[in-house]
Simulated scan of single mutants.
Amino acid sequence: MADQQRTIYLTAEGLQDLKDELHFLKTKERSRIADEIAEARAKGDLSENAEYDAAKEEQGKLEARITKLEDTIARSRVVNEDEVDTTKAYILSDVTVKNLATDAEQTYTLVSEQEADVSQGKISVESPIGKGLLGKEVGDVVEIKVPAGKVKLEIVGLDRSLG
């Protein structure tokens, strides 16, 4: 349960995205699902009403997502880019690494779990690579256990992301 109380660090943009999603779910989606339930209820016998069951299940999933978003927003702290140490890899750092086995270079932006998007090069500080890079400096070599085995990465560049 320690995870329930952990502060979640987000960019201002990331926090706003969560607030926008929460607002949409509470206003538009709740209303839409309530209408679906009312429509299905009007069709009669609820014991054999698949539309009613589906709408109630969707309502349960929606309420769970709303609860999760409310919790995340309540525990969030916006990271002030002026507070980010640019000499070490931390949240909001752009970290360029070289895979020592392949000589391939890759740049990752370290972000919160909620903002991670591998297709955009944004990796979570909770991921194996993200955890392995945290607090490291240019020139450091880290060995990180990944699903395919272990990978050795050298940090060849650090920059601060502006979100």
Rank of each mutant, 00 (worst) to 15 (best):
D71I: 01
L100P: 06
T87L: 12
N99L: 06
A89E: 06
V97N: 01
R75Q: 10
I73P: 01
N80S: 15
N99T: 07
Y90A: 10
R77Q: 15
V79D: 00
K68E: 13
N80I: 06
D71R: 00
T67W: 04
D103S: 04
V84P: 08
V95A: 02
E81H: 11
T72W: 02
N80Q: 07
D94I: 09
T96H: 04
A89H: 00
S76M: 02
L92C: 13
A89F: 00
L92K: 11
A101T: 10
L69V: 01
Y90L: 11
I66S: 07
T72V: 10
R75H: 11
E70N: 04
I73Q: 02
V79G: 05
Y90R: 08
A89K: 00
E70T: 08
V79P: 05
L92T: 12
V84D: 12
R77F: 10
T72H: 05
V95K: 02
A101S: 13
T86A: 15
D82V: 01
R75L: 13
V79C: 09
T67G: 08
V97L: 05
E70M: 00
S93Q: 03
R77D: 09
T102N: 01
V79K: 03
T87P: 11
D103Y: 04
D94E: 11
V84F: 12
D71E: 09
V79F: 04
T102A: 02
K68T: 05
V84E: 12
K88I: 14
R77P: 06
T96W: 08
V95M: 09
E70V: 07
T102W: 04
E70C: 00
V95F: 03
D103C: 01
D94R: 14
D94G: 09
D103L: 06
I73H: 05
L100T: 09
